[in-house]
């Protein structure tokens, strides 16, 4: 049952959910949170919009068709970050800076190579789930060929 109330609430919830997702991503290094969770939260935010407002209306607000490209960018970024240490003769996924060196802080964000990996994971999960939602959101009977 979709009423004016649910539509309003859904629209109101969208930006705060994205903010929570980004917060989960950023604080993952000192507290609970990581890229995957953040991607799922952001994906759920889009899912709520698609369910309540319908795919067509959401597509006017958000470029859903870009989601696969986002996923590609994410996996490429994560893979690059994981493989980059190989170029310096180190095993894959080696942290930079190493464990006993204090990283540079930007507020509560620590600058680690692992953060890049997690951002890649976030983009991948977000892009993938939005693409899947988009695909399945098109699955209504009146759209069949």
């Amino acid at each position: 049952m979709i009423t004016a109330l649910t539509r309003t609430v859904a629209k109101l919830l969208f930006l705060p959910s994205l903010m929570i997702a980004v917060a989960t991503l950023v604080k993952g290094y000192a507290d609970v949170g990581d890229g995957f969770t953040a991607g799922v939260i952001a994906g759920l935010a889009v899912l709520l919009q698609v369910i309540v407002l319908g795919r067509d209306e959401v597509e006017r607000m958000l470029p859903l068709r870009w989601a696969p490209r986002l996923a590609f960018a994410g996996i490429a970024l994560a893979l690059l970050d994981a493989l980059a240490p190989l170029a310096f003769g180190q095993p894959v996924m080696t942290h930079l800076p190493p464990a006993n060196v204090k990283p540079i802080h930007l507020g509560s964000l620590e600058l680690l190579s692992a953060v890049v990996f997690d951002v890649g994971v976030f983009l991948l999960v977000f892009g993938f789930s939005v693409a899947a939602i988009d695909l399945l959101g098109r699955a209504s009977p009146d759209r069949l060929p």
Binding site: F72, I75, A76, L79, L83, P85, L86, A87, G89, Q90, P91, V92
Partner: peptide, 21 residues
């Protein structure tokens, strides 16, 4: 290096897959 020799095949296949996709 050991690490590079060992991971090169996986890296080539994986990165190539992303590129081709």
């Amino acid at each position: 290096g050991d690490a590079l020799t060992l991971m090169a095949p996986i890296a080539i296949f994986w990165a190539g897959g992303i590129g081709v996709a």
